[in-house]
Design a binder for these strands. Structure first.
Length: 112
DNA sequence: GCTTTGACACTAA
DNA sequence: CTTAGTGCCAAAG
């Protein structure tokens, strides 16, 4: 059945597509799903039951490039992003726009 | 099925 | 720059 996945399942499909060293935002993910449920995306990330290596919720930041929240603390999120090569100054991703994975870049075919 | 809860977004001041 | 207010919507209770 097409489009039968829950909103959260769709989020996870897109989440997996964010490559190491890049980020996306709650806004872009919601937009890719044709929704304005930015906050709901955050809720999904917060309850993410999967390993962070397979479902890298630390790569999802706010639409203005600031790091945003994280279930294990903002510092941990910042640290992990730095380990992937990103620069973060004053809680904000440096050169954010060039690393941002936009809504149009996601592959929706996996949703079926 | 209504109410509350957010790891958010946007605008105005 | 910061704060306050409004809007947003899926999930859980």
């Amino acid at each position: 059945m097409n489009g039968s996945e829950s909103f959260s399942e769709r989020c996870y499909v897109l989440l997996r597509q964010i490559p190491e060293g890049r980020v996306s935002s709650y806004r872009e993910i919601a937009h890719a799903l044709g929704s304005r449920a930015y906050r709901a995306v955050g809720n999904v990330m917060n309850h993410n039951p999967y390993p962070t290596d397979l479902y890298p919720c630390h790569r999802v930041v706010k639409s203005d490039g600031t790091v945003g929240g994280y279930a294990w603390g903002t510092e941990v999120k910042t640290k992990r992003l730095r380990e992937e090569g990103l620069s973060i100054v004053e809680g904000k991703v440096v050169n954010f726009e060039s690393f941002l994975m936009k809504a149009s870049e996601f592959d929706l075919s996996g949703l079926n």
